[in-house]
Design a protein around this nucleic acid. Structure first.
Length: 420
RNA sequence: GCGGAGGAUGAU
């Protein structure tokens, strides 16, 4: 065990950041040199706890007094910045790295390229990829997989497959992560047959599908209404001895709730609990949504109260779902009450919340309240997206306000957002 | 001995 690492982590966890840094300096002065690997682990820990600014302070201490940072030191921070979607900062670290005489490796490029793709900056990501190639790096399975997933995220399965084939042509063997990305991409596109084909391929290669692979498949099956096969795969996982996690439970629970089978969903919920898994806000929100879809507002409220007992914090999705439930049950007064409660609790309603409320008023033939909500939204820092305009245009047609509908349409074609 | 890729919740 590394005493240095232990002490620094303790001090930082207690909030004694200054003391930790002084301890670091004192160690160096007494020639107890902390090694770079220990420092890297501490940095990683700070990043995992999202204490990024402390991590930066620590990096600066290390840069100024030692030990000499290596490429892992810098890449740890670059990765953290990418995860925080702060690409500018990531590139600042990149520059600091080269200024300190540390050359980037493929992993550094991989993180930055992935970060750029996630930020929606495809062009810059591709440029950096070319830079890596021009520097003589040979892309590995992680870079290829990360590229494939980038295309899955933007719904471009065609390019995902192109990247996959390019990877094979390079003589790189896909691993189970690569295959899971393929499965997920195909599933999102509704190509379940092909996804099953890849599942077979995984087994044929002597690899084991993971809980990620299964989740993607089960999710797609449930969404297509094929609960029988979804549940079959779920049981198959258990038979294969795979460890079920909270996500795969949430997939099956959500699938059942969407089909109106809340009682079955609850069975899985309790099964997860007795399996020792900790339920999260995703699961509870799915259950609430399931109740709301059946117009069982009372049950939804009970699930909401259960959240408190389980110490699960409700979020903006929870409130929006409940609000939708009230709207569906034609209880707009309660919906509005909930809306203001949510404001009072400090939650920021987002564009989905407003859209739910506006649509609720619209369907209750209360365009005045709908428009009032729209104005409230605009004056509270939420800009309308195309769904909001669709809802309003729809409402104007319902009210036979053709002029108003056309006027809104012209407004968005001139000023955006783009009609869909 | 330390760093990079994959699955789940709300609106039209």
């Amino acid at each position: 065990l590394n005493v240095y690492e232990f002490a620094i982590n303790r001090l930082i966890n207690k909030g004694e950041v200054e003391m930790a840094f002084n301890f670091h300096k004192a160690m160096l002065e007494r020639n107890w040199k902390p090694d770079t690997i220990a420092c890297n682990k501490i940095l990683k820990n700070l990043c995992l706890q999202r204490k990024i600014s402390v991590a930066f302070d620590y990096l600066n201490v290390v840069i100024s007094v030692g030990p000499k940072p290596n490429v892992v030191t810098f890449s740890t921070l670059i990765n953290a910045c990418c995860k925080e979607k702060d690409l500018d900062k990531a590139f600042e670290v990149f520059d600091a790295m080269t200024k300190n005489g540390v050359m980037p490796d493929l992993i550094v490029y991989s993180m930055l390229i992935d970060g750029l793709f996630r930020a929606g900056n495809l062009e810059k990501g591709k440029r950096l990829l070319l830079m890596a190639l021009n520097s003589g790096f040979k892309l590995d399975v992680v870079v290829f997989s990360s590229l494939m997933d980038a295309y899955v995220r933007i719904g471009d399965t065609g390019r995902m497959i192109k990247v996959y084939k390019a990877m094979l042509k390079e003589g790189i063997s896909p691993n189970v992560v690569t295959y899971s990305i393929l499965v997920n991409g195909l599933c999102q596109e509704g190509k379940l047959k092909e996804a099953f084909g890849v599942l077979g391929l995984i087994v044929k290669q002597g690899l084991e599908p993971t809980v990620f692979t299964y989740s993607a498949m089960i999710d797609a099956l449930c969404r297509s209404g094929n609960l029988v096969d979804g549940i079959f795969l779920f049981k198959d996982m258990i038979k294969k001895g795979l460890e079920l996690d909270i996500v795969v439970y949430s997939v099956i629970i959500n699938g059942l709730c969407k089909q109106g089978l809340v009682p079955d969903a609850l069975r899985f919920f309790f099964q997860a609990l007795s399996g020792g898994l900790v339920p999260n806000v995703f699961i509870l929100n799915s259950l609430i949504d399931g109740c709301c879809r059946l117009s069982r507002v009372r049950d939804a409220a009970n699930v909401y109260n259960l959240m408190g007992k389980l110490s699960i914090e409700a979020d903006v999705v929870t409130y929006t779902t409940l609000l939708k439930g009230f709207a569906k049950a034609e209880m707009l007064d309660e919906a509005l009450l909930l809306f203001f409660q949510m404001l009072k609790k400090g939650f920021q309603p987002d564009v989905v919340t407003y859209c739910t409320l506006i649509d609720g008023f619209s369907k209750m033939r209360n365009p005045t309240a709908a428009l009032r909500t729209f104005n409230f939204m605009c004056s509270h820092g939420v800009s309308p997206d195309i769904a909001i305009y669709n809802t309003l245009i729809n409402m104007h047609f319902r009210e036979c306000h053709l002029d108003a509908a056309v006027e809104l349409f012209v407004h968005i074609t001139e000023k955006g957002p783009n009609p869909d």
